[in-house]
């Protein structure tokens, strides 16, 4: 198996794993090994991105205004356990 043959199946290899022949090529080819490692590393790093980005306060203000404009908002109910 050469690099072109290996890389033709790359999406499937990354997704579901490689055949024995593909594993053999991976062990012997530094270029393809680096490529697979990089793609897997990118995917792993992406999973670590947490939703830490904060919208500006104007977003909530805009929501409040639109709810009022559309007559959707009801008076704040201070009740029961609140």
């Amino acid at each position: 198996m050469n690099c072109a043959e290996f890389q033709r199946d790359l999406p499937l290899i990354i997704d579901t794993g490689g055949t024995e022949e593909q594993e053999d090529h991976l062990r012997s080819c530094e270029v393809c090994r680096d490529l697979v490692n990089d793609l897997r590393y990118i995917a792993e790093q992406a999973k670590l991105l947490i939703p830490m980005l904060e919208p500006s306060p104007k977003v909530w203000k805009g929501i409040e205004e639109k709810l009022k404009d559309q007559g959707l908002v009801k008076p704040v109910q201070v009740r029961r356990t609140l």
Partner: peptide
């Protein structure tokens, strides 16, 4: 229709929605 609780939901989920 409790506006305060809707605001609480906004506070809880705004980062995730905005980040997306």
């Amino acid at each position: 229709g409790d506006g305060a609780c809707f605001e609480a939901l906004y506070s809880l989920h705004k980062r995730r929605v905005y980040s997306l």
